[in-house]
Design a protein around this nucleic acid. Structure first.
Lengths: 135, 135
DNA sequence: CTTTCAAATGTTATATTATTACATAGTGTT
DNA sequence: AACACTATGTAATAATATAACATTTGAAAG
């Protein structure tokens, strides 16, 4: 049975920061993380930012640029992910990672006339989620 | 002869800020703008940020989220633009707005299973530009 | 022309986000 | 043990952005 893959060797601080982000149902800001981990001995911004940086490199979290906040990667466990797409509700601010093959195939193979080949992208869609559309 | 459309009624500060951004060949940061307009009497951050906010609303500039910097909209003069796509070179950091119908058509009509309809998107591609690829 | 209202401005202070710099400690080799 | 590499701790500060409030401007309506 396909149990979740083993957490890949995160260091102490990395694991602490990752746990906070993963447990959250919404994007978490760096200083909110910092506040929440004071009790665990992490006291200063660089400790948090260093962990965030590493977690991003590992593909375990993503930064939602328009919000300066971080979410755990849901689309594929522990894979290094260079292609991210989010949907963001403009009212309730809910952020959801989009996993859609048509979208990712299209973007991963996109080339424009500039001759630039893209290895990585970040896409943020804005609109109204189902719930907020009704009200 | 199709002369550039009249600048649509920008206020004094808005015009000053826009001129700086438009003349730059690269994305401009808010505090860089602030520094550059001190001589014109704009002295404090809110003056710059308010102008930026308005210019974004008007579609005359865009924010490059991953860089916290601002570029003039090149793809269509003076239109309110809710769909932005950029290519960003990871070495030289050159940022170019992508105007590509196939891309914009695809994204504008994209719908995912969440039932969310998107009115707006921002896409940032990362890679190596032609020049940097060679080196 | 003057009243009115919304938009824009000026100003001070402060909040939020992120990095630099440097010292120390752990971890896994050879 | 010696080495290199990664991670940690800590203080200070840089960079980005907003809040709050007073005032002015400019266009539209009476």
């Amino acid at each position: 049975m396909a149990k979740m893959q083993k957490e890949y060797n995160l260091s102490k601080n990395q694991q602490i920061v990752f746990d906070i982000i993963e447990k959250s149902s919404e994007p978490v800001k760096a200083y909110s993380i910092l506040f929440n981990v004071k009790k665990k001995g992490i006291k200063a911004p660089p400790q948090v930012y260093r962990a965030l940086e590493k977690l991003i490199k590992l593909g375990k979290i993503h930064k939602v640029e328009s919000k300066n906040a971080f979410v755990a990667c849901k689309s594929s466990n522990c894979e290094i992910s260079k292609a991210t797409a989010f949907s963001i509700c403009e009212i309730c601010e809910k952020v959801t990672e989009i996993a859609n093959n048509k979208l990712s195939n299209f973007l991963n193979s996109f080339e424009d006339k500039s001759g630039m080949k893209y290895k990585k992208y970040n896409l943020e869609f804005f609109g109204l989620c189902k719930k907020c559309k009704k009200t």
